[in-house]
Amino acid sequence: MNEETKEKLIRAADFGRKAIHIGFIPLIIYLGYKNSNPKPSLLRLISPLAA
């Protein structure tokens, strides 16, 4: 394999790992919020007692 391609693959894997690390929880919250009907209050993310 070409050294350059190898470098690129390693960098892509590192970037993917970082993207998951940062974006996974926001993605869950976004999907959960978008697909909830009725839309829950966002305060409930912090406390279960909020209305």
Partner: peptide, 12 residues
């Protein structure tokens, strides 16, 4: 432990 069920298929 605090769990809030925002909707039946979404929990925090």
């Amino acid at each position: 432990e605090l769990q809030s069920n925002l909707s039946p298929n979404f929990q925090v």
